[in-house]
């Protein structure tokens, strides 16, 4: 007796289905946080979501497009400043200013990319840093935005978000959660599309993908713009939550790039799951060690070095190697169907 098999290509697995169901449940619970969480918890969670979105974006840039940037604070700060400028001078409501800040961030990334794409590898990284410095020094010169000491969002504008304080806090919380979901969805859709396949090919071998006719420059350029726009939106949200902005806070390399890189490296670069795991580990470390001040940063630096040397694929990479687990069904597998 013979059993006939047909084969089909599938991306989903049992684990990814379970993950999707669990993910939706978690999302519902998190969306209901204003009902069950305290003010401090909600602030912390918002921060987690915004860091998650920054980490996923940096991961897309470095882990998938091979563009290792240490200057993403340029777009975080730019987005923040655009929110303040649009709200204060153009009369745009703060909520509407957020997507606008994203569009402006993607636009300003065009000339930036044209310049720094001339640099390769590690020099590209430092080039992005120079750009962030240029942004910081330039915004420090704009006296209407408070120059070097920065400015606060006028109370009237803050009130315009929502009338009561608890409603405002719930709104910004939901927007932070929404931002993280948006980033995850965009990246997931991007990676599942043909463009994503091309990106994976570029990551695996630039030379080979070039010979398949993939235009590497355009793909990298497109990813850079998308990342810049979404990073600027995240930046706008970060400073909407802080209600105050200054050049040093907006373009801070430690806050908006170093921590983000640590999250991705510790979690696992080049995977969608890595930044999620990384952000959880990062906040656990931070909440337990933050009282140590600079010692905490010393430990973080050491952890990043050890992970890079001993487990360059990060925690998620280790887990995936041992178990083959994949929560976001990205890789295709051949499935045998019994008929």
């Amino acid at each position: 007796m013979t059993t006939e098999h047909t084969y089909s290509i599938s991306r989903s697995s049992k684990a990814s289905l379970i993950a999707a169901v669990l993910g939706l449940l978690v999302l519902v619970v998190l969306a209901a946080a204003p009902l069950w969480a305290g003010r401090a918890d909600m602030r912390l969670l918002s921060e987690v979501f915004l860091y998650l979105s920054l980490a996923c974006l940096w991961n897309l840039l470095a882990g998938y497009a091979g563009l290792v940037s240490v200057g993403q604070q340029a777009f975080v700060g730019f987005g923040g400043y655009m929110l303040f400028a649009l709200a204060m001078f153009a009369g745009v409501s703060p909520l509407a200013a957020i997507p606008l800040a994203g569009i402006l961030g993607a636009l300003v990334a065009v000339p930036v990319a044209l310049l720094i794409f001339r640099l390769r590898g590690a020099y590209f990284a430092i080039g992005t840093w120079v750009i962030a410095e240029v942004f910081r020094l330039s915004f420090a010169q704009i006296s209407a935005l408070g120059g070097g000491s920065g400015t606060s969002l006028p109370v009237a504008l803050v009130r315009s978000i929502a009338s009561s304080r608890s409603m405002r806090e719930a709104t910004t919380y939901w927007m932070a959660l929404g931002m993280a979901v948006l980033v995850l969805v965009v990246i997931y859709a991007l990676l599942r599309s043909r463009k994503g396949l091309a990106l994976t090919a570029i990551r695996d071998s630039e030379l080979a993908s070039q010979s398949f006719g993939i235009d590497i420059w355009w793909h990298k350029f497109a990813v850079y713009l998308i990342t810049a726009g979404l990073t600027a939106m995240t930046g706008a949200l970060i400073f909407l939550q802080k209600l105050r902005i200054s050049p040093d806070a907006a373009f801070n390399v430690n806050d908006w790039t170093a921590f983000v890189i640590f999250i991705v490296v510790i979690g696992g670069i080049g995977t969608l799951e890595g930044p999620i795991l990384g952000v959880i580990v990062f906040f656990l470390l931070r909440e337990t060690l933050a009282d140590l001040g600079s010692t905490y940063l010393l430990i973080l630096g050491a952890v990043a070095i050890v992970v890079m040397l001993k487990a360059p694929k990060g925690l998620w990479g280790m887990l995936k190697e041992r178990t083959g687990l994949e929560l976001f069904p990205l890789s295709r597998r051949v499935v045998k169907n019994k008929t």
Binding site: A122, A258, G301, A302, A304, M308, L309
Partner: peptide, 11 residues
């Protein structure tokens, strides 16, 4: 290029 970059960044 990532490992040297990350390790010196950590340093």
């Amino acid at each position: 290029i990532l490992p040297p970059l990350m390790v010196t960044f950590g340093l």
